[in-house]
Simulated scan of single mutants.
Amino acid sequence: MRLVLASASPARLSVLRAAGADPLVEIADVDEDALLAAQPDADPGDAVTVLAAAKAAAVVERVAIEHPDAVVVGCDSMLRIDGELVGKPHDPDTARRRWKTMAGRTGELLTGHAVLRLDGGTVARRAQAHAGTTVRFAEPDHAELEAYLASGEPLAVAGAFTLDGLGGWFVESIDGHPSNVIGISLPLLRRLLGEVGVGVVDLWGPRPV
């Protein structure tokens, strides 16, 4: 069975590869801002799950041509802090403002997951849910923050930080699974795959000796 990751995130791909899977990557083209605007009163967990489901659905037609019995995984992450759900900042000024809010405080990194199992090129089974991880942020000094912003890393990641990159220096601790902060929760994904009849061991490739 072919596992397909509907995400351009190298971090999600790295997590799956380290966990024994080697997914095909199909980048989903969805208007995240429009999807969020269409559900202004949605619960934060529901909101990120809707985005994940949209990403998975966006690649099904492409995948089904060559892999009619594939399982497609979509994910989307956002940070909830002060009751606000924030995604990628995209520019240094926005990232700087985010860090002024986050520094020395606690937020919740939410990741929506959607799994679609194809049978003969059509979606036969689906499962979706979200996972949350509490993140306690350090207080980078001015020089540290400016250097981090200049690296470009926080501009293209949810919440303007990473756990597995340069941003890891500025995370004090977490409550929850670290893979969820990176962008794909292995415990939740295992459960969702089970709901569509896929065992994780069936996705493992040969391990290096």
Rank of each mutant, 00 (worst) to 15 (best):
S9H: 02
P10E: 15
P10G: 15
P10K: 10
A11S: 15
R12H: 13
S14K: 11
S14T: 06
V15H: 05
L16P: 02
A19H: 13
P23R: 02
I27C: 12
D31W: 00
L36R: 15
A38F: 08
Q39A: 15
D41W: 08
P44D: 04
G45M: 08
A54Q: 05
A56P: 13
V63T: 03
H67E: 07
A70H: 03
A70Y: 00
A70S: 10
V73H: 01
V73P: 00
S77C: 04
I81K: 06
D82Q: 11
D82T: 02
D82I: 06
E84R: 07
E84K: 00
P89G: 04
D93P: 01
W99P: 01
T101A: 11
M102G: 00
R105P: 13
G107C: 07
E108Q: 14
L110E: 11
H113L: 14
L116E: 01
R117M: 12
A129F: 04
H130T: 10
H130N: 15
A131V: 03
G132V: 04
T133A: 08
V135C: 14
R136C: 07
F137E: 04
E139P: 00
E139A: 06
P140K: 07
P140G: 07
H142V: 08
E144F: 00
A147R: 11
Y148K: 06
G152E: 09
P154L: 13
A156Q: 15
L163R: 07
G165N: 14
F170E: 01
F170C: 04
F170S: 01
V171G: 07
D175C: 12
D175R: 13
H177K: 06
S179R: 05
N180M: 05
N180R: 12
I182D: 03
I182V: 15
L188I: 09
L188P: 04
R190P: 15
L192W: 09
V196S: 08
V196M: 13
G199Q: 14
V200C: 11
V200S: 12
P206L: 03
P206F: 05
V209M: 12
